[in-house]
Write a protein that binds this DNA or RNA. Structure first.
Length: 372
DNA sequence: TAGGCCATCTGGTCCT
DNA sequence: AGGACCAGATGGCCTA
């Protein structure tokens, strides 16, 4: 069974990975070109604060332009023994100028390099759980989550069976900061709702796709509070207690109406605080998600074992209902296991309603209720 | 105001 | 000599 799975999946995965690498290379080239355009016209002309420091350090210039006279600045200036090694050349105005130009070029290259690095990091953000354009994971959290994600997928492949949701969440959140842990767990929680409401052929309440490559083993999406109506603690996921979103089925009857996910004004809600260890559960009783909380953009990209391109993905709405449209982002192949949405700019939530969410740009604020 | 995150500058090191 | 890479320093922005 497992070997069959591998033989069917691996060729697809390898091809998708190759495509992804190719896409990223193209994208990086584009970025690089763009940066260079900007740099040539803007960055190189802008005054450099640090250049004055560099100049002052090269200080033994006495306005002599004749390079033939270049000598050590302080040579034989006193009784000090001669220094070994290459002679320090006197910094003429011409050399200072050349040095400045070199430094500016180096700065531009460094900027470009960092931009490339950031764009690669952005690509990485897109393939780890909880991707969001507007509320990005920090660099370090992205790397940690990516590492955990790889470990988790590897574990799934090794075991060849459905992973336990608790173990999966714990593995994903290992070493992550509290707010990021909440965010990731919140993403998983919301999709747990999907599993709860999706009919399973075997009659089980909790449905996990049979292959980690056909869909995310525990599909996720980002969520965050965007509405003051948000009630912290609502629908909290208590992994230890195996209580996955109580009341969701009541709140989301199969066949319920789907919100307008295609609206450009769509805002996904924040991740509610989640407790994975049973301790520090939000004090309030679990409630059905608010109206705003229901306005999630569900679209799961299924590539399927035989689907060759992610563009053939089938978006699913809540309760398994289809919702039209596909993402136009430049999504790498592994996005077929991701849920995407755009989150709008941070929205201020009244202090008494925040309840431990990751707010604002950074994820460093917020709840301390989740320990994995 | 402190702390986290980030972009940028800079000098050092290694390699071609 | 010049480019790539790295790490430290610095300052800005944002949030609690």
């Amino acid at each position: 069974m497992l070997s069959r799975l591998f033989s069917e999946v691996l060729p697809d995965v390898q091809r998708l990975a190759a495509d992804w690498v190719e896409d990223n290379e193209n994208e990086d080239c584009k970025n690089k070109d763009g940066d260079h355009e900007n740099l040539d016209e803007d960055d190189l002309d802008e005054p450099l604060e640090g250049s004055s420091r560099a100049e002052s350090e090269m200080a033994c210039d006495d306005d002599e332009d004749d390079e033939a006279e270049e000598e050590e600045c302080d040579e034989n200036s006193g009784d000090k023994p001669k220094k070994r090694g290459p002679k320090k050349r006197k910094m003429t105005a011409a050399r200072v100028e050349r040095s400045k130009v070199r430094r500016m070029k180096a700065n531009a290259r460094e900027r470009t390099r960092m931009h490339d690095l950031n764009s690669a990091l952005e690509n990485l953000r897109k393939v780890v759980p909880c991707y969001s354009k507007t509320q990005k994971l920090s660099k370090i959290e992205t790397l940690r989550l990516a590492k955990n994600y790889i470990m988790a997928l590897g574990e799934i492949l090794r075991n060849g069976k459905r992973p336990d949701v608790v173990a999966y969440v714990q593995m994903l959140c290992k070493g992550l900061s509290q707010p990021t842990t909440n965010l990731v767990a919140g993403c998983l929680q919301l999709n747990t709702r999907n599993f709860l409401t999706e009919p399973c052929s075997d009659g089980a309440r909790f449905h996990v796709p049979s292959s980690p490559f056909s869909a995310h083993p525990y599909s996720y999406r980002c969520s965050r509070i965007s509405s003051p109506h948000y009630q912290p603690g609502s629908g909290a996921l208590n992994v230890r207690g195996q209580s996955y979103g109580a009341g969701y089925e009541a709140a989301y009857p199969p066949g319920g109406t789907s919100p307008d996910y295609s609206s450009p004004d769509y805002e996904a809600p924040h991740s509610p605080p989640v407790c994975l260890n049973g301790a520090g559960l939000p004090g309030r009783q679990q409630q059905a998600p608010s109206e705003t909380d229901r306005n999630y953009h569900y679209s799961m990209h299924y590539s399927g074992l035989t689907t060759s391109r992610p563009s053939h993905s089938i978006p699913f709405g809540p309760s398994g209902a289809r919702s039209g449209g596909s993402h136009s982002e430049n999504i790498p192949p592994f996005h077929d296991v991701h849920l995407h949405h755009d989150r709008a700019a941070p929205v201020r939530v009244p202090e008494d309603q925040r309840g431990g969410m990751a707010a604002g740009r950074g994820l460093d604020g917020g709840a301390k209720s989740l320990n994995v």
